[in-house]
């Protein structure tokens, strides 16, 4: 099935892999996500788009048990923050919807997740974090 990102510019999709696209400001030395026209920490306009590390560790997590307004994808779904290998903490869906199955600091990796179909029948894809057993 053809796939379409939930929003342009957030990530690169290549087959089964997804890479988040963030911003890096050489003058501040800091990363952010999603990439913004200026560095959110200093206002510097030297932001370069970079792909962010695929691996990280689980920093906080929960599950959303009922679909919130404006959302028509599957529920319940996992929701959390993963600290990437470059220190940036990113909010995202988790592929594991049971909070009891997750633990602090466990290795996670970013993956594509389908959250529905658009009017042309294409799968709508967003980023999510999945436990990556045995790594890290």
């Amino acid at each position: 099935m053809a796939r379409v990102p939930v929003h342009p510019g957030l990530f690169e999709l290549d087959g089964g892999t997804l890479r988040l696209v963030g911003g890096y400001s050489p003058s501040s030395g800091r990363f952010h996500f999603p990439s913004a026209p200026v560095c959110p920490y200093t206002g510097a306009d030297d932001v370069e788009e970079v792909t962010l590390p695929e691996q990280g560790r689980l920093w906080s997590w929960t599950a959303v048990n009922a679909a919130p307004p404006g959302y028509s994808g599957p529920a319940p779904y996992g929701f959390g923050v993963v600290e990437l290998e470059n220190g940036l903490r990113v909010v995202g869906r988790l592929t594991e919807p049971d909070p009891g199955a997750l633990s602090k600091g466990q290795p996670m990796r970013v993956v594509p997740e389908e959250i529905g179909t658009d009017e042309d029948g294409r799968a709508v894809v967003t980023w999510a974090f999945a436990p990556s057993a045995g790594e890290g």
């Binding site: 939930v6 906080s60 959303v64 404006g70 994808g73 967003t126």
Partner: peptide, 26 residues
């Protein structure tokens, strides 16, 4: 929030409260 954030399930306030509660507990 932007519409795509709602579509991706990234907007419910109780979920953000829960992430903060979990960190406070940790």
């Amino acid at each position: 929030f932007d519409p795509w954030q709602e579509q991706a399930g990234l907007t419910p306030a109780p979920a953000y409260f829960a992430l903060r509660a979990r960190r406070l507990m940790i």
